[in-house]
Design a protein around this nucleic acid. Sequence first.
DNA 1: GTCCAGGCATGCA
DNA 2: TGCATGCATGGA
Length: 278
Amino acid sequence: MKIKKDENSLIVYDLDCINLDYTLDCGQSFRWEKNENIWSAVAFGKKIRIEQKDENTLVFYNTSEEDFENFWKNYFDLERDYSVIIARFQNDKFLKEASNEYYGIRVLNQEPWEALCSFIISQNNNIPRIKGIIKRLCESFGEDLGDGFFTFPSAEKLSTLTPEDLSSLRAGFRAKYIIDAAKKVTSGETDFEKILANDISFGRESLMKICGVGPKVAECCLLYGLKKADAFPVDVWVKRIMSELYEKGLPECAYPEIGIAQQYLFHWRRNVDNKLTK
DNA sequence: GTCCAGGCATGCA
DNA sequence: TGCATGCATGGA
């Protein structure tokens, strides 16, 4: 990975295993939008616009070197060597196929609160609708950054609200879960710093004290927001994969980054059905 | 009208 | 401890 400054933008080149289209639209983050060839979103309270120029090059618009080092490098998991992981996946027929077809998926390191709140909303829900609810959540309670960009509302802000205050989101039964999570995070009863510093079982235990957080939502929060690559979210699609292909469990080559393997398999399996219905 | 979606809480055996 | 059921909403 090398970096070059170009007026207001930052060109990051010599990258390995990064495909923005797959990474930003594979059901791990719900905030990214693509216009022309440029992906945009808000994270860490900042607007970000990026473009993939070729297989190994990303351009970060209006981005300082400092912000790249402090936020985006880690957000896109660019410090992890995916070549080693993908090479191991070649030892399994299906992981090989999934990682070849969708080569370039990286598991993002999102902000813990956004990951937790997003995956509470995801339960018994579909991806287009999850995106809509989160969009309305940000527009209603986030900070307006202009040009249609809003920050993800803080846990502190949401902790002062009632489920009724969220009725315009049309989140259904999940509204009360969002409020409970916001309260526990704000009070420190759920402590992301502690979860980051401890192993995954501690994280599971603390997250599942939140009403509306079961095994699946906890695994998602741990994988996408708390840097636990050994988290393994099992939703209806991964259940299908397991029953169709891996009755005896995932092969050894999927470990210890089973969460990354899961992301490739999830996206791969979901798109089989998408292709069939087209 | 019916089924389903990146599930979970609840109640009952 | 394990399993069935209800839950809000909207698209297919």
